[in-house]
């Protein structure tokens, strides 16, 4: 299996130039295989979110290199990184982060609009199909603030899939949802993983999600404490 994401000797130090620098990640070496379903667990403050943000090029490591699709990202310009994120990575965050001013459908279309390609009938059909997939056909024209937490999270999932990214990074995607909704969201993610061969890296504290992943990585005090594959 080719490696879609690779971290090499990643260190992350906050406040490097201050008197009290805090190192949150220590020499992390990690790689992910294409179309795998991975979970990252760890206590809060363990550095797992920082790790995910570095994986998604949202944050830069203090040193070490991040390879996405075997391409070194540290020397890329901001605009190149923006393009890379837009095309290759989908994000799902705990607080779903929809644009409240836009409808569910418009939110789903947003990553495509950011790529500045014209919205064709096919693209619109795809957005609708994704909303159907996450079971939101009835509320797709609702403003996102008028939807329930579960619906918003499904919208965020549909949005993350819009540009057919190879990788989906999710930080506590079910963190504030009830257990039934959590189960549904998990099933949905797994289905997408199978259907589109999308690589998933999910931070979760929910053991029901973690134990179903192909691989569990535990981060403790900025280091990989445990790494097991099913």
């Amino acid at each position: 299996m080719p490696k879609i994401l690779e971290l090499k000797k990643i260190n992350k130090i906050y406040g490097e130039n201050t008197k009290v620098p805090t190192q949150v990640l220590f020499d992390i070496d990690l790689s992910f295989e294409e179309s795998s379903f991975n979970s990252i667990i760890g206590q809060s403050g363990s550095g797992k979110s920082t790790l995910l943000n570095i994986l998604g090029t949202l944050d830069k490591p203090s040193n070490g290199s991040v390879l996405i699709n075997q391409i070194e990202t540290s020397k890329m310009k901001k605009n190149q990184l923006s393009n890379l994120r837009n095309e290759t990575i989908g994000f799902i965050f705990q607080f779903h982060y929809l644009l409240p001013e836009f409808t569910a459908l418009e939110n789903v279309l947003m990553p495509y609009q950011i790529s500045k390609r014209p919205i064709t009938k096919e693209v619109l059909a795809r957005a609708n199909e994704l909303l159907d997939l996450v079971g939101l056909e009835k509320v797709k024209n609702n403003l996102s603030i008028n939807m329930s937490g579960g619906q918003q999270q499904r919208t965020a999932i549909a949005r993350s899939l819009m540009n057919q990214p190879k990788i989906i990074l999710a930080d506590e995607p079910t963190g504030n949802l009830d257990s039934d909704t959590t189960e549904q969201i998990y099933e949905l993610l797994r289905e997408i993983n199978k259907k589109y061969k999308t690589t998933f890296i999910i931070i979760t504290h929910d053991r029901h999600i973690a134990e179903k992943a192909d691989r569990i990585i535990e981060i403790k005090d900025g280091r990989i404490n445990l790494d097991i594959t099913k």
């Binding site: 998604g56 949202l58 901001k78 605009n79 923006s82 393009n83 890379l84 994120r85 837009n86 095309e87 994000f91 965050f93 982060y97 929809l98 644009l99 409240p100 001013e101 947003m110 990553p111 950011i114 790529s115 949005r159």
Partner: peptide, 16 residues
């Protein structure tokens, strides 16, 4: 800022 942040995560350019 939340919206700008998420737009940037989705790859919107700083200029836009």
């Amino acid at each position: 800022s939340k919206q700008i942040g998420i737009l940037k995560a989705m790859g919107i350019k700083d200029k836009d």
